[in-house]
């Protein structure tokens, strides 16, 4: 079997294959629901309804999409420069810790000063977490896939230690959780009475900023050049090592904003389960978006919708929520295949 590139894929091809992929995902998801003893059509309906069936459902989906946009952007920025950051999870927790450190009363500033300070400190912490692996990569050629992945466990255990020790809420009945943020440190809600908070607005803004950086700035040009052809970049005199370090700072900072936004926007305090794998899901989000920052917003909302919809469906139909994970995995695999098929002809022999 061989792949022949297509110079100019037709519109039918560009839209057709992703649609087929989506259909396949739905088919596989619903046949699993059938296996679990539920009516597949009803299940599907329930997922759709749970993800987007009401104003509440839609806002819930956007809420869930918020951290995914940040981690998705972090991964997209890094992968674009071929810096394989698998450690968005660690950077997220680093950001969450900073939000708690500054937001639980250490600084008695008004919101207008405190929130930017928290976001800035979070970004700094996330950036520093990724800077280590990036320096090891640039200076000694250490594979960052390994180091960033391992850092996830190191940081998670460190946070666990903090929550059992210095950051532990004295009023928390012994639970490993931090004290609650002071009101000034909370991100306000976009609409009164509904859970959607301004973290979502910050996520959208971040996507736009990343898009501007990539397409309009010298650093963006350097990052794309280094990612697409490091040898040519080096020959042309682009400071490859420095560009990778700057990319790491940006990527780590973006992932950390997910932690800041979850703590300050949604949860109000830090626990060890603040992220159900947002850092890893961010990789799926970024890949589905083909590393495009604006696409990340769309794919994060899609992925969040699948999660929220499956959650609600499982409660209503008595089907395990694992179906959401399977559907996402199928969506990623079929989408990657579909995208390949829009660009290549498969020939036998």
């Amino acid at each position: 079997m061989r792949l022949e590139p297509i110079a100019n894929p037709t519109l039918a091809r560009t839209l057709g294959f992703p649609l087929i992929a989506l259909t396949l995902t739905v088919l596989i998801g619903s046949s699993l629901a059938m296996l679990a003893g539920a009516n597949p059509f009803a299940t599907l309906g329930l997922i759709l309804k749970g993800a987007a069936g009401s104003r509440f459902a839609i806002l819930e989906t956007l809420n869930r999409a918020t951290p995914l946009i940040f981690t998705g952007l972090a991964v997209a920025v890094a992968f674009r420069a071929k810096l394989w950051n698998i450690g968005a999870e660690a950077q997220l927790y680093a950001g969450a810790v900073m939000a708690v450190l500054l937001g639980t009363g250490a600084l008695g500033w008004p919101s207008g000063l405190l929130l930017p300070a928290m976001a800035g400190a979070a970004m700094l912490a996330g950036a520093l977490v990724l800077l280590g692996p990036a320096i090891l990569k640039v200076r000694f050629g250490v594979d960052e896939v390994v180091t960033t992945l391992l850092f996830n466990f190191v940081v998670l255990l460190f946070v666990s230690m903090l929550l059992e020790g210095p950051l532990k809420d004295p009023m928390g009945m012994g639970w490993p959780q931090s004290s609650r943020l002071i009101p000034e440190a909370r991100l306000p809600r976009i609409i009164d009475g509904l859970r959607l908070h301004w973290g979502f607005g910050l996520a959208i803004l971040s996507a736009l900023v990343v898009w501007v950086i990539q397409s309009r700035t010298t650093l963006g040009y350097e990052m794309r050049a280094v990612g697409q052809n490091r040898q040519a970049a080096e020959f042309a005199g682009i400071p490859v090592g420095r560009v990778i370090l700057k990319t790491a700072l940006l990527s780590g900072g973006l992932a950390a904003l997910a932690g800041f936004s979850e703590v300050a926007g949604l949860k109000g305090n830090l626990t060890l389960d603040i992220s159900p794998g947002f850092g890893y899901t961010g990789i799926i989000v970024a890949m589905l978006a083909l590393l495009n920052p604006v696409g990340v917003v769309v794919s994060a909302i899609f992925v969040a919708g699948v999660f929220v919809g499956a959650d609600s469906m499982s409660r209503a139909a008595g089907v395990p929520t694992y179906i959401a994970n399977i559907m996402l995995a199928t969506a990623l695999l079929t989408m990657v295949l579909a995208i390949a098929l829009t660009r290549f002809n498969v020939r036998r022999g």
Partner: peptide, 19 residues
């Protein structure tokens, strides 16, 4: 491999050394 970046446009490749 060294002279150009395949998926960059001609514009982007033209300024590779002077960007």
């Amino acid at each position: 491999k060294t002279g150009t970046i395949a998926d960059f446009t001609l514009t982007e490749n033209a300024i590779l050394e002077s960007y």
